[in-house]
């Protein structure tokens, strides 16, 4: 396969200058900013709802729509406080940071590799945690919380594109970048499929 200039492998400072050539490097800051803000809004709402629930145990959260889509039952579980404090607090801090990172990159910041490594570690923790929560929500709690699902989507998106940017022009990176939307769609369809199967009785009763 013939190599074109953008396949160049560079080193040191040139690599930082050549960052814009990595797939999605230009769109990632926007994704970080917008995704960070959306995730922040969801986590913040969950925190406010949690406080309302603590003040009044009888409070019905705004997202408790039916027996399946029900924040109230999810928010009362031990899984909602895995680390001894309400999970959304992590989201409030982490998503705010991601949005700020996106804004900084849009303003011209060119982070060093160690910063990218840190970002990767953060989103990886996030995506693992989110999948554990999906598992718990589906198979242990048996209810879905709409705001939490917003967080699932945003976390997966951010993990996916941060990873693609970090993989850069490696063989795996290029292959995944080529089919990025396919992989992402398959990923989301898998989760939607699990939700469909798990609550089939309920969904089929709606029609």
């Amino acid at each position: 396969m013939q190599r074109s200039p953008d396949d160049l492998t560079l080193s040191g400072d040139e690599q930082i200058a050549g960052e814009a050539d990595r797939p999605f490097a230009r769109s990632l800051p926007w994704l970080l900013l917008v995704g960070g803000l959306v995730g922040f809004a969801a986590a913040f709402t969950l925190t406010v709802e949690k406080i309302a629930l603590l003040r009044d145990p009888d409070y019905v959260p705004t997202c408790s729509i039916n027996p399946i889509l029900s924040c109230g039952s999810v928010m009362r579980t031990p899984q909602a406080e895995v680390f001894g404090f309400p999970n959304p607090l992590i989201g409030v801090a982490a998503f705010a940071a991601l949005a700020a990172i996106g804004a900084a990159m849009l303003a011209g910041a060119r982070p060093r590799p160690w910063f990218w490594a840190g970002l990767q570690a953060g989103v990886t923790f996030g995506v693992v945690f989110v999948h554990w929560l999906i598992w718990q929500s589906l198979y242990v709690i048996g209810a879905l919380c709409p705001y939490c699902m917003v967080v699932w989507v945003v976390t997966i998106l951010l993990f996916w594109y941060v990873t693609l940017v970090n993989l850069g022009r490696t063989r795996a990176g290029r292959l995944l970048a080529e089919y990025h939307a396919v992989a992402l769609t398959a990923w989301f369809l898998l989760i939607i499929g699990l939700i469909t199967v798990r609550f089939w009785d309920y969904w089929s009763s709606l029609i």
């Binding site: 396919v182 769609t185 369809l189 939607i192 499929g193 089939w200 009785d201 089929s204 009763s205 029609i207």
Partner: peptide, 23 residues
Amino acid sequence: LVAAFAVIVAVFLAVDPGSGPDG
């Protein structure tokens, strides 16, 4: 992919309509 998924769900819904709790 999306179309295939939609078709599968539609087929299952057609085969098994409303056996749910408040069907």
